[in-house]
Amino acid sequence: MLAKRIIPCLDIKDGRTVKGINFENIRDAGDPVELAIRYCKEGADELVFLDITATNEKRKTLSELVKKIASNINIPFTVGGGISTIEDVRVLLNSGADKVSVNTSAFKTPELIKELSNQFGSQCIVLAIDTKFDLDSYPDGEWLVYLNGGKVKTNKKALDWAIEGVKLGAGEILLTSMNNDGTKNGFANEITKLISESVNVPVIASGGAGLMQHFNDAFTIGQADAALAASVFHYKEIGIFELKEFLYKNNIQVRI
């Protein structure tokens, strides 16, 4: 049976791993290559690297880092952050990344998803969606898409954007709830479930992991195909091996 995936996420700034709370208050969390090797040994199923500096002059540094990561680990990994052209993607894939994630640029130019999936295949195009439950724009509230690392609100519903993105060729959805991110109160299972049931590609739940039970809930209640977390793994609050044993005992299919 296809296993549910556990994915540590490394936010990269100037070549270091960092972690913020609610997308702010960034602090240092170590060397990304060392962390990647550690997660690989502990049984992570996949890794995600998000370059949160991602300015053009830094792109070269990023591809060097990607090469270092790819030569050291034997599991798939995704790279994201500021990707806006076919050339950006080509460089990262040629450096050894298995997938790339696109976010703001894809929202602004949806055609990009189509071009990228035609060029490189849907399987390596992950659509990252940052979403927040917004009470202002809709009477009963609505999960809306946010851009630029959560700084810019749009009026687009996360569900609609996910469906549209998949139609354009996205092979996976990485859904981050800004309400939950950094809180350690659990994943946003309601919107995760809604999107997971509405698209025919895997959905990665992200934001809010604090306890092992939260991962269990993301898979059962949230219907997620994979769950992503950062700080609980970086600061060793949850061990990946222990987490997988816990899930296994709870009848979740995992790779042990």
Binding site: L2, A3, I75, N200, V201
Partner: peptide
């Protein structure tokens, strides 16, 4: 969901290519 993305088991293994690999091992 299609495509299949992720780790799944391999079983009924034969051939020297799969020597020393346990039944139901996970691969990507």
């Amino acid at each position: 969901k299609v495509p299949q993305i992720g780790w799944n088991n391999i079983y009924d293994l034969k051939s020297p290519l799969l020597k020393n690999i346990n039944e139901n091992s996970y691969v990507y």
